[in-house]
Nucleic acid binder design. Structure first.
Length: 414
RNA sequence: GUGGCCGUAGCUCAAUGGUAGAGCUCCAGAUUGUGAUUCUGGCUGUUGCGGGUUCGAGUCCCGUCGGUCACCCCA
């Protein structure tokens, strides 16, 4: 049997790497005062049909369940979060700073950095419309990547502002109901032939030159971004950020700030992306709850590719994994007749908190030491003729010392 | 969803249309209370799958599944 395309098995080495990613995500999010939450993997398809829009709809992993409900595996968290917060809005002090790091599903052809099931960290700030909240979220993105071992030479956060684009468009006579279509053209500007872009823009009565001039000099209409930049500069994080109005993003619900994080080499897809969705909670609650909000997602697939490519990040990850190796202590049963005593020693060590392993059946002493080495154990405890004493060997220095069996948990270091 | 390339042992790969191989890994032994190296032996294939051409197909043709890259888009 083959795996379904785009899905992964996690062997122990893969699981260790995934756990490292999750560990950093949770640690840094907590450092910023974010609380973890979660929601269902499966949602009614309407949740996404109404809110996400654009390409995401074509990528829904959906089916009809036995109750004839049309359902979809979650492709993103924001609609679920918006529903959750809208339902119990009065129970929480503002602003809310929440995160989650579950699996998501998108039905698309798999490629480098793209699978059908992936992990994604989601961090959101709800109930604060200030640029200070924008900057706080961006600082979190940056610190997450710094904690993985990436520096300003490895990644850049590209900032843009949909408000600025909407003012630009409305000021040039683009009708309100066609704004999303207009933004779609801007989004594809870099990937489309010039003549094609020019033709599409003319449908909106906008000249390509005006768009290019606006992108080239964002300061005129994107003052908000300058304020965010100043905030990040005060934190010493300015070198990680650049204003880039070509970023628009495909999701329909974004309103103000939008951003994407890219590797500096340009080899990978976006590492993370997000923005403001100030109107979404009102839509989700049928007008009952109005709450500004913003958030971002960071996927594990591109992140893992980049960790593999940046030596500093890879070394940090491997050190983390090595520090959680399978065994700290390996009990060597030198004389099989002492197995009963050895089992007692194993139990004593484990109850003292040592990660302890041993040979489940009779094996040669040399073989047992070899296994101890392979497992990365720091100590070997040899059970044999010395009983009721045992020999504790430091596997790095090869020093040995005799310790009374009852004191074995000290490993001779007391 | 569209197009290019690829698919041989667990992994990396070889094999003019003519007997399917090598290295690595893994397991065991050389080594009866100490980790390395080395040496020896052992395990593994419906050549992704299904058809077709041929005296004969891993090799050529068609289909299909999977992978990969580009488009699309984004985590």
């Amino acid at each position: 049997m083959q795996l379904l395309p785009g899905f992964r098995d996690f062997y122990p080495e893969d699981c260790a790497r995934r756990n490292y990613t999750l560990s950093v995500w949770r640690e840094v999010a907590a450092r910023y005062g974010f609380l973890e939450y979660d929601g269902p993997v499966l949602e009614p398809i309407e949740l996404y049909k109404k809110k996400s829009g654009g390409e995401l709809l074509g990528q829904l992993f959906d089916f009809v369940d036995k109750g004839e409900r049309h359902v979809a595996l979650r492709p993103e968290m924001t609609p679920t979060l918006a529903r959750m917060v809208a339902a119990r809005e009065r129970d929480f002090k503002k602003p809310l700073k929440w995160f989650c790091a579950p699996s998501f599903f998108r039905y698309e052809k798999q490629q480098r950095g793209r699978l059908r099931e992936f992990l994604q960290l989601n961090c959101d700030i709800l109930g604060d419309a200030s640029p200070g909240a924008d900057a706080e979220l961006l600082a979190l993105v940056i610190d997450l990547l710094r904690t993985f071992g990436f520096g300003p030479q490895d990644f850049v956060v590209r900032l843009s502002d949909r408000d600025a684009w909407m003012q630009f468009a409305l000021g040039r006579g683009v009708p309100q109901e066609r704004l999303l279509d207009f933004l779609g053209v801007i989004d594809k500007l870099e990937r489309t032939q010039e003549a094609e872009s020019r033709r599409k823009l003319e449908e909106f009565g906008v000249e390509l030159e005006a768009v290019r001039a606006f992108i080239a000099d964002p300061s005129a209409e994107a003052a908000k971004l300058q304020g965010i930049m100043a905030d990040l500069k005060a934190r010493g994080l300015a070198e990680y950020v650049a204003v880039d109005l070509t970023i628009v993003r495909g999701l329909a619900y974004y309103t103000g700030l939008v951003f994407e994080v890219f590797d500096r080499n340009g080899k990978e897809r976006a590492l993370a992306g997000g923005g403001r969705y100030d109107a979404l909670l009102e839509v989700m609650s049928d007008g009952k709850v109005k709450m500004p909000a913003l958030g971002f997602g960071m996927g594990d697939v591109v992140l893992a590719n980049m960790i593999e490519e940046v030596p500093a990040a890879k070394a940090r990850r491997d050190a983390w994994i090595a520090s959680r190796n399978a065994a700290e202590v390996y009990v060597v049963v030198a004389e099989e007749s002492r197995r009963t005593e050895a089992l007692g020693v194993v139990q004593t060590l484990r109850e003292a908190g040592w990660r302890t392993d041993y040979a489940l059946s009779a094996a040669k002493v040399g073989k047992q030491f070899q296994v101890a080495e392979t497992l990365g154990a720091k100590f070997a405890v040899v059970i044999g003729a010395e009983w009721p004493e045992v020999k504790v060997k430091d596997l790095a220095t090869r020093e040995e010392r005799l310790v009374a069996a009852e004191n074995v948990a000290t490993l001779g270091r007391a």
